[in-house]
Amino acid sequence: MDFVRENADLFLDAFLTTLGLSLLAGLVALVLGTLLAAMRVSPIPPLRGLATFYVETFRNTPLTVVFFFIIFGLPQIDFVIGFFPGAVLSVGLYTAAFVCEALRSGINAVSAGQAEAARAIGLTFGQSLREVVLPQAFRTVVPPLGNVLIAMVKNTSIAAGFSVSELSSLLPRLVNADAGDLTLVLVGVVVGYMVITLPSALAVNRIERRVAILR
C-alpha cells in the first residue's frame, strides 16, 4: 500500500493529463471532422477531393506515424511545436478523419426525401445542411461518434512514446517495480482509462435514447 501512497500524485497528474489531452483533441477532431464532412458533400470538387484525400491519408496511416510527423516532421518546415500541443494536434487530426466518416455515414442515412423537401421549400445548400440534414445526422451519429471519441481516449496512450506524461507513460516508468506493484500499476492505468470511457459510454447511450428519432 506504501507504493500506492507514494505514487498517488503521479497517478493523479497522469490521469489529468490524459483527460486534458482527450478533451482538447476531441474538440479539434469534432470541429475539423465536421468541416471535413461538409466539404465531402459540398458542390465544389476540389473541396471534395481535398477532404477525401485527407480522410484516406489519415485513415490508412498508423497514429504513431502521425505523431512522428507532427513532433519531428513539422520542424522540418520551420514549425516547432511543444509535446503536449503536438499530441493534441496528432490525436485531433487523426480522429478528425474518423469523425468525418461517422458524420458522412450519418448524412447519408438522412433520407433523400428530407434533403429534397428542404430544397423544394427553397433552402440553399448551406441552409439545408445546417437546418435539416446535419441536426438529424448528428442524432443518428451519436453512437458512432461517441464510439470514435471513446476510441480516441484510448488512442491518446500513444502519446506516452512522445514525452507526454499521461497514464500509459507510467508503465515504462514503473516497470521495474516488483510483480505485485506492477500489477497494481496496470490495474491503476486501466481503471484510469475506464473512469473516462465508461461514463462517456453511458452518456452516449443516454443521449442516444433522448435524441433518437424514429424512422
Binding site: 513532433i71 519531428f72 516547432v80 509535446f83 512514446g161 512522445f162 507513460s169
Partner: peptide
C-alpha cells in the same frame, strides 16, 4: 523532465528547440 523511450528522440527534440 521530458522523457522519451530512446535518446535519438531527445537529440531530435534538442535540435528542434523543443
Amino acid at each position: 523532465l521530458t522523457l522519451f523511450d530512446v535518446y535519438s528522440k531527445c537529440a531530435d527534440a534538442l535540435r528542434n528547440g523543443q
